[in-house]
């Protein structure tokens, strides 16, 4: 417990962590300020017009649906300029995932219910970067500067020391993420209440937001562990940064181009970014062009495939687990000179 206490203080006192916190706060302030400046509370007239436009849009959808049904029933001739799906249920407003809402027709008005999800994704992206960099710097700088040696002279249990450091990092990241999210979303909720619209904040909204945020938090923790693990293996903060840059350039960009030239099937499945996206969004629909290249045409070939959150998490956990086990195993036997 003493070790964790000391580690929390060391982590909090690190210049790099403090700098990242300042950047996080700065990003908050800038985003919030630009949102406030770019938003206004809608007038009664704007609201009435938006309501009217929503009604009109839904009516138009219903008309399209009914026309489709009529064409299929042979009651009216098909219009060459209008879209006619094979199955008219595609146009049924009742079966749509999302119907037009008032917020869609209120330009320049910040609607919290509509913006909360993309705002959370931005926050998660920043926290992911924060976790990776701080995780790498926390152990990397300590290994490089002799801080770990100093600590081991006091606490000769290597695995316990490294475990305490990793545990501290994860604990701090959870706390920071939750705190940052509360402040961040709270600020935007307040903006919605005062300088925009709150939107429809029902149970379904909060449930969906919480689920997305939970997945994001897991990603932040995995990123922190990865940064920590790679820096431990490479004995330096830059090892993690280098590994990340090398992976992005060599694999995500370079190998992708090579695979495309070689017509490799389902290239996206070989990329980590796919699993990050699938885990974050819950489900990723992808298209494999090579699946249809030899066929008679796209009309009969369905090259789409799906990566869901479950397999995505399994891949991310396997990678992070492998790096962590390797980091601990190496650190246990490594000569600290």
């Amino acid at each position: 417990m003493n070790l964790v206490r000391a580690e929390v203080e060391r982590l909090a006192a690190r210049r790099f962590a403090q700098l990242m916190l300042v950047l996080l706060a700065l990003a908050f302030v800038i985003t919030a300020a630009t949102t406030v400046v770019g938003s206004h509370r809608p007038s009664a007239r704007e609201l009435a017009m938006a309501h009217a436009e929503v009604t009109a849009a839904i009516n138009s959808m219903e008309i399209e649906h009914e026309r489709c049904l009529a064409v299929k029933a042979g009651q009216v001739p098909p219009d060459e300029n209008a879209y006619l799906p094979r199955d008219c249920s595609e146009l049924d407003p009742m079966l749509r995932e999302q119907l037009p809402v008032v917020a869609d027709y209120l330009p320049g008005v910040f609607v919290f219910a509509q913006q909360a999800e993309p705002l959370t994704v931005i926050l998660i992206a920043f926290l992911l970067l924060f976790g990776f960099l701080v995780g790498a710097s926390y152990i990397g700088a300590d290994l490089n500067s002799g801080g770990v040696v100093n600590l081991l002279l006091w606490r000769p249990g290597r695995l316990a020391v490294l475990g305490a450091k990793l545990g501290t990092l994860l604990g701090v990241m959870v706390l920071l993420s939750v705190l940052a999210t509360v402040v961040y979303l709270g600020t935007f909720w307040l903006i919605g209440q005062t300088a925009g619209l709150p939107g429809q904040l029902d149970g379904e909204f909060w449930q969906k937001l919480a689920a997305g945020y939970g997945r994001g938090l897991v990603l932040v923790l995995l990123g922190s562990v990865l940064g920590f693990g790679i820096a431990t293996l490479g004995r330096h903060t830059s090892a993690a940064l280098g590994a990340f840059a090398a992976y992005a350039v060599v694999w995500e960009l370079g190998a992708r181009v090579v695979f495309e030239i070689l017509d490799v099937a389902r290239i996206e499945q070989l990329m980590l970014s796919t699993y990050v996206g699938a885990w974050l969004t819950g489900r990723l629909e992808l298209f494999d062009g090579s699946a249809c290249s030899d066929g008679p045409g796209f009309a009969v070939c369905d090259g789409t495939y799906t990566v869901t959150a479950g397999p995505a998490l399994a891949v991310l956990l396997a990678l992070t687990g492998a790096v962590t086990v390797a980091a601990f195993a190496t650190f246990r036997r490594r000569d600290l000179i």
Binding site: N2, L3, R5, A6, E7, E9, R10, A13, R14, R15, A141, S145, G146, G147, V149, N150, L151, W154, R155
Partner: peptide
């Protein structure tokens, strides 16, 4: 031995003391 440059001497020792009980 190397120490963090931006820590004071007192803080460096205090953290070691805390870690070592």
């Amino acid at each position: 031995p190397q120490f963090f440059g931006n820590f004071t001497g007192r803080r460096t020792l205090r953290l070691l003391a805390v870690a070592g009980g």
